[in-house]
Write a protein that binds this DNA or RNA. Structure first.
Length: 207
DNA sequence: ACATTAAGTGATT
DNA sequence: AATCACTTAATGT
């Protein structure tokens, strides 16, 4: 479990590091696999050691909208709030890449909260930072035009995966942005004509 | 060869 | 910006 200590040696105190190592288990998921769905009970706290996770809101009518990503060394703030209140998930979390997680049983949540100040700080920080990203997502959905949102979406994804070529279909983009495939295709065509991107079948290249 | 999925486009609301 | 209807192209079996 070297990765974990490397990632967190400056964040958690030694006793906590050891305790986490003791009770945590490693779980691996492949890209595109689902970590948790809306309505599912949260039974554990996942800390991301490797890869990234896409967090989306999803309703019963299969409408979906992308909210933010989880990166290495981060965890879902949703999980914290759900664990504290013993509520089920409000979001859909799917693996953007192959993922390695450190799974911690929820019963340690309260205990560590009062016992370790570094754990408390970690929880507060993730809640704060994900809340900021959520606000940012709301701003975009409410105030930005679709073509601007689309470009932001593509750039963000490209940066996350550190790849100029995105292997994604127009319909998948449409699903993430909760719009129709036809609209996405047209906007992408416009971006291609403007020389911002180039299009292939199931892939988009940022220029 | 045939079926399925991805993408392009005009017309309408 | 969404929906419909249709076409064309690429891929899978």
């Amino acid at each position: 479990m070297t990765t974990f200590k490397d990632l967190f040696k400056n964040i958690f105190e030694l006793n906590l590091l050891n305790e986490i190592e003791e009770v945590g288990t490693i779980k691996e998921l492949k890209a595109q696999e689902t970590l948790i769905e809306p309505g599912q009970a949260v039974r554990f706290i996942p800390i991301l050691l490797k890869g990234s996770i896409k967090v989306s809101r999803k309703n019963s009518a299969d409408n979906e909208i992308f909210l933010y990503y989880l990166n290495e060394g981060e965890t879902c703030s949703m999980t914290f709030t759900c664990c504290m209140q013993r509520k089920s998930s409000q979001v859909l979390a799917t693996c953007e890449e192959d993922v390695e997680l450190l799974i911690i049983p929820i019963e340690y949540m309260d205990k560590w909260m009062s016992q370790y100040s570094t754990w408390k700080a970690f929880v507060m920080n993730t809640v704060q930072s994900k809340f900021d990203e959520l606000i940012n997502a709301v701003d975009q959905i409410a105030f930005q035009k679709l073509d601007e949102r689309l470009l932001v979406f593509l750039k963000e994804k490209s940066e996350l995966l550190s790849d100029k070529i995105l292997y994604i279909s127009h319909s998948q983009v449409a699903k993430d942005m909760n719009t129709s495939r036809v609209v996405v295709s047209r906007l992408l065509k416009k971006l291609e004509n403007d020389g911002v991107i180039s299009l292939g079948r199931s892939n988009i290249t940022l220029l």
